[in-house]
């Protein structure tokens, strides 16, 4: 009980005092996970669209693989990405291990199946005859895609939120490929793990509260965008 109270007080102090280190960590978390989500949204929704709107052999298998990917353990992704971007690994020449860029890549790998899986479900849920109707009204293919995206925007925004939630809260991959380097690749989750290890429970608790608040803020923003136009 004491700890919870101390943590709350500490969190309040850190935020009010605008502690530069905590601010930096928070900003980096937002930046890294935001960019990773953006990448996953671009890839996930476009690939999801293609899979949802076309028919091809092995489609069920592919969709099951994507759906499995929605539960991809971050540490597994972290390990694979690490092995690839080691100095002496196949992508070692990029020299990005232990950088924020590496975290973005790992997180994008984690979020893409989540966004794609939900997108496929969302787009397949649209009435199949709708496409024919749109095309028969003289729309180009691009216009049709745009209209379908708009029609499915509620579940698609949910896909974005699920992707973002998955990566901002993830610690396994971030610590492996980012290295938790002070002032450089330390994000909220890895800092929390480290402070817990150091026995600084109050700071760890404060960081958790900041993380929760950040996730809430971002999701609140997404939800506003999602709910702005009332569904007809």
């Amino acid at each position: 009980m004491n700890l919870i109270l101390e943590g709350l007080i500490k969190a309040f102090q850190l935020i009010v005092a605008l502690d530069p280190e905590v601010l930096g960590i928070t900003w980096l978390s937002l930046k890294v996970s935001g960019l990773a989500t953006l990448i996953s949204v671009v890839i996930g929704i476009s690939c999801g669209m293609i899979v949802a709107l076309t028919r091809f052999p092995g489609k069920k298998l592919l969709v099951s693989i994507v759906n499995t990917g929605m539960g991809l353990p971050p540490v597994v992704v972290g390990l694979f990405v690490t092995v690839f971007i080691w100095r002496n690994g196949p992508l070692g020449f990029l020299d990005i291990l232990y950088t924020p860029t590496a975290i973005i890549i790992a997180q994008a790998v984690i979020a893409t199946p989540i966004v794609m899986g939900i997108s496929i479900a969302a787009l397949q849920n649209l009435p199949a005859k709708m496409r024919l109707q749109i095309l028969s009204l003289g729309a180009t293919r691009l216009q049709m895609v745009w209209i379908l995206l708009r029609e499915a925007r509620l579940p698609l925004m949910a896909a974005v939120m699920a992707g973002f939630g998955g990566v901002i809260s993830e610690v396994g991959a971030s610590i492996m490929v980012g290295g938790n380097i002070k002032g450089y690749s330390r994000v909220l989750t890895t800092a929390t793990v480290m402070e817990t290890g150091k026995g600084n429970f109050d700071v760890a608790f404060a960081l958790s509260i900041i993380l929760l608040f950040l996730v809430f803020l971002v999701n609140y923003l997404f939800t506003i965008i999602q709910q702005r136009e009332r569904p007809r």
Partner: peptide, 21 residues
């Protein structure tokens, strides 16, 4: 210089050294 500290156990640290990482 900019130091990237990777804090692991001594065993893993030496493994990283062995691999040139």
């Amino acid at each position: 210089y900019f130091v990237k500290t990777i804090s692991v156990g001594s065993g893993q640290a030496m493994k990283m050294g062995e691999k040139g990482e």
